[in-house]
Design a protein around this nucleic acid. Sequence first.
DNA 1: AAGCAGTGCGTACGAACGTACACTCTGAGT
DNA 2: ACTCAGAGTGTACGTTCGTACGCACTGCTT
Lengths: 194, 194
Amino acid sequence: MATGRTDPERRENIITSALDLIAEEGVAGTSHRKVAARAGVPLGSMTYHFADMDELLREAFIRFTSSIVAVFEERLGAATTPGQAREAVADLIHHLSTGNQRELVLTHELYTLAARKPTYRELTREWMRRSRRALERHFDPATARQLDALIEGLSIHRALDTEPHERALTLEAIIRITSTGSGPGAQTAALPDA
Amino acid sequence: MATGRTDPERRENIITSALDLIAEEGVAGTSHRKVAARAGVPLGSMTYHFADMDELLREAFIRFTSSIVAVFEERLGAATTPGQAREAVADLIHHLSTGNQRELVLTHELYTLAARKPTYRELTREWMRRSRRALERHFDPATARQLDALIEGLSIHRALDTEPHERALTLEAIIRITSTGSGPGAQTAALPDA
DNA sequence: AAGCAGTGCGTACGAACGTACACTCTGAGT
DNA sequence: ACTCAGAGTGTACGTTCGTACGCACTGCTT
């Protein structure tokens, strides 16, 4: 047992390159050969470091979700009042749906995998769980759940829109969903015509 | 100019088979050969009826979005009061996120394509536009926009959850997002600590 | 100095793909 | 009866892919 030629960063480099490639060309356009070329490693390295393509993809998406959750927790952790928390959520939505949209693209790629393969579905659930936990620092569980879904929908739709909505509208939606009204269920009964 | 062998349903059959295959194996797992086999047509038929793979996919997704919008419009069209409209929205969300989840899977596949190719992005925008128009029969444009995003997020998250939330929670979220409060923007200014 | 264990790589194989294209066959026109 | 335009198909080509596997090379042990 001995080595020295082993480059401990090589594996990490491959994962980074894989994630970049997925963002650019999608999972469908990602192959061992392309990742290897981008990472500057020989093709043989791929199967040496990763049992198969799936392991590489999994590791790449694990890294991706971790980084997203980290931002999420950091921004929400910095907020100390409900108002600040709402502002932080608006920031997160606009951060996700503006610019190069790398995060959005990768999210869709992951969801597409999750829709079919249990492994990725579990990964996505864990992501959702951690997001909600971060939101529960400021809101009750039911509200956190609804808010998390709203963040998802607003991010996706804003990214797709030709005229992305303004921050004011985002904030308005956040305020509405976090307004608990007269208690859980009470509003339902109070509806005039339901 | 003459024929008789021409089967006018053949093209439609191919599209149907393609959509089924995409739902089962994803765009990545869809090939001319597999679609042909499923539709019971020779491989040569594929390039005869469709210029290339992309045209087939596009047609398949056009059909898909049309069918979704149709359900959307039908259910919302049947509602006559805001309360009924809210109920209809809850139904739509639960319809989408329960059962075989074929619609969800196809939606993700489409979004993934849309994230990278303008053609599909436009298709998705058109879908969004029509959904909002249907919602605007019952809600003001800003609310319709927010509600549309909420539907998206709730459907996705509900489908992913190990314990999908109850209808009551869905309805609660819908009620919150459609409660316009004291006028647009007013709530923002009235926030205690923002 | 010689051996050796094990890391890391080059290459080649078989499968699957999209697509081009030469062809067959039909039935209307004469 | 014969022709022929064009609808529809079978096949083959070139490319790309994942992965298996034999080999080279390194640096420790003796």
